[in-house]
Write a protein that binds this DNA or RNA. Structure first.
Lengths: 388, 388
DNA sequence: GTGAAAGCGCTAACAG
DNA sequence: CTGTTAGCGCTTTCAC
């Protein structure tokens, strides 16, 4: 009956249920191994080690163990060392639910994205953004719950749900659909949230933390580069749909560069087409007469630039000799086929680093003044390749 | 002092700390609104409604409320209705940490992916897989924690960590790097895990639940289609690196189809190249003499097929007239430029649906016999477009 | 049917 | 510096 006393000892303060399970098991046969018995007792078969287990072995109270694990300054180095060693040996990991219940912190960040992302022209960019985001949070020891803004079944806001269920400490919002209600909840529960990449559609962004890209600057850089390379008559083609007006800003930058170079703006050189290869391809054929009078194209997405180059070739117009082209996004389209495309690299690395560090500060440290918002428009940069 | 009695009442059984905060606040001024006071009391400013709040309003015990919310059969319809109505009015959401601590269930699935996914040739496919996976889990009311298999800093297994921290109920493994140790932990803690898409490298897959794609069948379908379209001498080009031998199986299927059509297999028609547009493009030019003697190509990735078509055109070889081509993956490459590419659609929708339903069963219901593994090789299908 | 009380594993308050 | 005790919000047992 050594096993029984072991069980009784370990489960002294545990539930009736546990005990009954044990008894049942013992009746089934005394030859079951103690590990198996332990597993049977807890319904979920968990045999996790707790701070009490450590406490017993270290001959201290569980409070002391808790303090050691949290590196409290009020514990002597000696005890700390002893306790941590045992914890290490038992491969202890904290039960995050218990800790969260007590501290109201989960160590989890909610990353909210746009539904229907699959259909995006820019999804390659966004996907890269997610993976790098995940990676950055990982190095900061934060887990992420990734969800769509709105539950497609219930149509309820996932942001609100996650707040109320207390599953996350903060949010990174990679969509522009944040609603008034979401925002109210964030305020009310004082949950930090940072807007990334997308500008909210329904909300005054000046009230939030954000890291966005400076699309105006991107358009400016692209156009200025074309001008520097000797182009005089420059077309620009934006994409529709225009999420968060990003293309609008790029066109603004285009205008700004032209003005700077004393070139009057001709609105008939500004187009907007579907963000698809075929659409771009057709565009060239349809507007070939106009295009023949131009010497530069600022394509506001790489996929357009790639199609333009291919289509122009069929008309005997060579890039970059006869026509300089700059794309946007620095996506794989820009390095798919030679000539590789000169393009604008969106500063997603910088956005991610800043946003992750900020959310860490906001969720972990009390000394941050949350009322002072961090708001940055981060500048993209030019990558010169062969198309210009 | 109405406010004070309200506070005292609500915080009767709460911490000293809470109370001190309240008192401090009251000293600051009696004009602070009670909502603000409540917010101040809890350090984290949370003013969540709990089952006790509901209980008080409904004049029942919090136990009863709990039972109602969990739709227990031992509660009368009348009480249930009353309680649920109040819960609805208060916009109650369960505190998931408290529930999890008590039930050992979190409602969260860990989705584990491969590090360095960014570099994958097939990443577009995998990205689509993730988004659809997330969507499917969402409709099943499951949240997902998305992490890399291994923490890049500590090099510790995230699978093990999530198990021990009790953050997840189960895993969907979208990588092939599961280790012996991971597996041992899964067994020991009896956590369900399903292998998706990728075949594990270090582990005997026959011991796990899995839903993979039948690459052999894909290769077979592609080749058979080419044969049916009249091709006799068919090249196949696989990609390196060969993750989980997927290309090996596709080539097997290619062989099987040829054999079925009594065509002897010529190993010099089987190639392996980098999964890149340029590599494929160059391949055509380098092997143009051989290619001229062939009438069909089974390109084991759409991106290869796209490059082949472009390169062949430069040699005056038109697709599909002079050469039939079938790609693989049904990715956006296959519909980028005409002629659109006949391709093999990977059954990711079916994989996702099955895997998500299975993980739900495995984590929610006790009646499932976990020792019987669900193991399916799901068949991809052919999408006929213009290249064949 | 319902409620009182205990317990999940942890942190925090307070007393030594 | 350390231990005792209470409490986080929920589920579960057991008594009525």
């Amino acid at each position: 009956m050594k096993v029984l006393s072991f069980i009784l000892d370990r489960y002294k303060n545990r539930s009736y249920d546990s005990f009954m399970h044990t008894c049942a098991r013992l009746l089934l046969g005394p030859h079951t191994s103690s590990t198996n018995l332990l597993r049977t007792i807890h319904k979920e078969s968990t045999i996790s080690v707790t701070i009490k287990d450590i406490a017993k072995l270290a001959n201290v109270s569980h409070t002391t163990v808790s303090r050691c694990l949290n590196d409290s300054p009020m514990i002597s180095d000696k005890t700390k060392e002893k306790v941590l060693k045992i914890a290490e040996e038992l491969q202890y990991e904290v039960n995050s639910n218990a800790r969260s219940l007590s501290t109201k912190k989960t160590g989890i960040i909610g990353v909210i994205y746009q539904q229907g992302l699959e259909d995006f022209g820019s999804s390659a960019y966004i996907n890269a953004l997610f993976l790098e985001l995940r990676h950055a949070l990982e190095t900061l020891q934060l887990d992420t719950i990734l969800v769509e803004a709105i539950n497609p079944d219930t149509l309820a806001s996932n942001t609100v749900r996650l707040i109320k269920q207390q599953k996350v400490d903060g949010f990174l919002l990679v969509h522009q659909q944040i609603t008034e209600e979401d925002n109210r909840m964030l305020q009310e529960y004082d949950i930090p949230a940072i807007q990334i990449h997308f500008k909210p559609e329904y909300l005054d962004i000046t009230t939030m933390d954000y890291y966005l890209t400076d699309n105006d600057h991107g358009g400016y850089l692209a156009t200025k580069h074309l001008l520097e390379r000797g182009a005089h008559k420059i077309l620009t083609i934006a994409c529709s749909p225009n999420i968060g007006e990003e293309y609008g800003y790029r066109t603004e930058g285009y205008r700004r560069a032209l003005t700077e170079y004393d070139i009057s703006i001709d609105d008939s050189l500004i187009f907007e087409i579907e963000c698809e290869y075929i659409a771009a391809y057709d565009f060239i054929h349809e507007h070939i007469e106009l295009i023949k009078t131009c010497d530069g194209i600022f394509a506001q997405a790489d996929i357009l630039a790639a199609a333009f180059i291919a289509a122009l070739k069929e008309h005997g117009i060579n890039v970059p000799q006869d026509m300089k082209i700059v794309g946007y996004d620095d996506s794989f389209y820009s390095i798919l086929v030679p000539p590789f495309i000169t393009t604008i690299h969106q500063p997603r690395e910088e956005i991610i680093t800043k946003a992750c560090n900020r959310i860490l500060d906001l969720t972990r440290s009390d000394s941050v003044d949350k009322s002072i918002k961090e708001q940055e428009l981060i500048k993209p940069y030019l990558i010169i390749r062969e198309s210009s």
